[in-house]
Design a binder for these strands. Sequence first.
DNA 1: TCTGGGGTCCTAGGACCC
DNA 2: TCTGGGGTCCTAGGACCC
Length: 354
Amino acid sequence: VPAGYWVLHIDLDQFIAAVEILRRPELAGLPVVVGGRGDPTQRAVVATASYPAREFGVRSGMPLRTAAKRCPQAIFLPADNPAYEQASERVMAVLSTFADPSVANPKIRDAAVEVMGWDEAFLGAVTDDPEALAVDVQRAVLTGTGLSCSIGIGDNLLRAKIATEFGKPAGTFRLTAANWEEVMGQRPTGALWGIGVKTARKLAERGLHTVGELAAADPAALAAELGPAMGPWYVQLGRGIGRGRVEGTPWVRRSLSHETTYQENLTEWDDVRAGVTTLARQVVADLAADGRPAARVAVKVRFAPFSTYTRSATLTAPTSDPATFEAAALDVLDLFTKRRPVRLLGVRAEFERP
DNA sequence: TCTGGGGTCCTAGGACCC
DNA sequence: TCTGGGGTCCTAGGACCC
């Protein structure tokens, strides 16, 4: 990593809710909950809640039903993914101008952008003043799209990512080796990017509750208990160590899938077969758009109430042919011998690994 | 809290081979 | 026949992230 290299993590504030409010300004300041088809009696979860809705305890990932109980006066809107994709593309287009060598920018060098989802990206660059760059980015995104973002500044991707939380909303925060311990040392391990509730619990069982404690743990001991790669990696996370350079190389997908939760459980196996066929058709259509054949097929079945299983098979030869792929998906479905009511079906295609 | 949809990577066990 | 050691591939499941 060259001297003066900084990583910025750009995170749109309340992205989905913000896009909805952009379209309907009268929603500003109201409790808005986006998810499913906008019907809080459906099997669906919250995609995003506006700040006023969050004050009632509504959170992303929460069942819409629960959100409606906590905030009955909320305005429920259906998720409009194409609209969010469009908005995201506009944001990423603005960000990419910072990494475009043909756009003159005397303040930065060696810039690259890495997109992390609809509402998140990393920007890496050599700059004398990362805060000034961050403010430039915020202004450009706001001017170009009407959306506000928070920016974390770090000496690697991990620290930049974590820094963003401290910059919200619409601000910036710098997190580096210099203030890592002071800012993060006493926080729970679950605050780290890559440690979820399960791992945090496992670490706590071993006496590791805080980031500081994890940083001081023995990597070899954790390797034996949590896996040869994951164990040592967790210790690195505790120390704030991560990848230093933002990669500009385009993302190559490894798999492609569709899944559906049915509003009513499927009780007839013929309906299950029909469901798998429908999903396989959707996958194969996307396969055609990708231009590469599937090498493996996997079928996911979630039986009621909520037990999930996956079966998969390597195809005799990679295929993009709809009939072949559908037949393969149905063959994999036949590996399921239980015939209980089905809540969810999924079909995934995997590409040959390079 | 009755729990979406689309992804990625790691782990472990078994099969199979030399 | 009572059993090594190493490598690779396949598969299922787990955990995490947006």
